[in-house]
Design a protein around this nucleic acid. Structure first.
Lengths: 195, 195
DNA sequence: ACCTGAACACCGTTCAAGT
DNA sequence: ACCTGAACACCGTTCAAGT
């Protein structure tokens, strides 16, 4: 249903990703996608039921960029690698987090990511009853961190500094790579402590 | 600027909140707000520069419902109380999380919440260099948990069960109050461990 | 100071009609 | 099977004009 898409479905999704990267989600309209494909706006509706379905396929495309093959082995490193990769993929496509936020997690590759995280934390020793919250915690951490990252990287540096000062954050030249790993370690340490 | 709003500003914000609670964010248009106030759509533009500014004031209204007075004392209980209250306020206004997501954290009451969390985690013993990530972690946890909560409470129970099964979650009658506290404890334990 | 109507440039979506 | 144009019911926003 999601994997064997026709050429035209692929083309529409691909063009949508282009528009996302070039102009952002606000410019991602059925009409704009169609016009960039030199096609009538209404013809997209033969391939997708509506815009929501197209957005679902876009979320699936994003998640397909993440490699979950490492399911067989089991160690904390593997989980960290997956999460790091997750963040990099989300960063590589403009407004990808917004797509994930307005779209339900019902797409195969997206569910594969969640299930892989579940497996890896079970291998870490997390009890079955704590899998839900641990998995949710990790998943939402990645999404919200990447979402925030955009806000902390202003073209205008002054704006960023002002915001940090207002929020009472003294260190205004944060290394976001370091901060991301710190946050991930905090969650993983918290999870391991609750085992 | 945000606190001493005129009567009409208050009325517009109040009506916007009503529409949010009754019909959700998709129905929150300048035209609908205006018509429910028996006023021309364009007259809102005398009170607010544009829709983004109105949304900013709505986010400020939401955050004003959260009481941050407990800044003087210092213990973990106080932080937990604030976070619990934060969640309840977000739950009490439909699509409040979406408002927070599309709106920057530049509003006084919203910044007050973040600054209060910062203070409380500093009192917990968190080093200054770790305040940013710890605060971000807690803030985003509340927002994303409440956002997810809506998705896990379908009218259709079957739909919820199917989703849980697809995600490999066995226990499908989760107590979200319990899960929320578990997640919060995981984060706080992780933070305390990194002190 | 505050509100109006008309207008502009957009949306998502439906549907009868074409090939 | 696939695409079109016309049309419907919406958007946010501007602006000259009213009181």
């Amino acid at each position: 249903m999601y994997e064997n898409v026709s050429l035209t479905k692929k083309l529409i999704i691909s063009k949508a990703i282009d528009i996302l990267n070039e102009d952002g989600i606000d410019k991602l309209s059925m009409r704009v996608i169609a016009s960039k494909l030199n096609v009538s706006a209404t013809s997209i509706y033969w391939h997708f039921k509506n815009k929501d379905e197209l957005l679902l396929y876009i979320s699936e495309y994003i998640c397909q960029q993440i490699n979950c093959n490492a399911t067989k082995e089991f160690c904390e490193e593997l989980l960290i690698d997956l999460i790091v990769q997750y963040r990099l993929v989300l960063k590589s496509i403009r407004d990808s987090v917004k797509i994930m936020q307005i779209t339900p997690p019902i797409t195969p590759s997206r569910q594969e990511i969640i299930r892989t995280i579940n497996k890896l934390i079970i291998n870490l020793g997390v009890k079955e009853k704590d899998v839900f919250i641990s998995s949710t915690l990790i998943n939402n951490y990645v999404l919200s961190f990447v979402s925030d990252e955009k806000n902390f990287c202003f073209e205008n540096v002054d704006e960023s500094e002002t915001l940090f000062r207002d929020l009472g954050i003294v260190n205004n030249d944060l290394d976001l790579e370091v901060e991301f790993m710190k946050g991930l370690k905090i969650i993983l340490n918290g999870i391991k402590l609750s085992i």
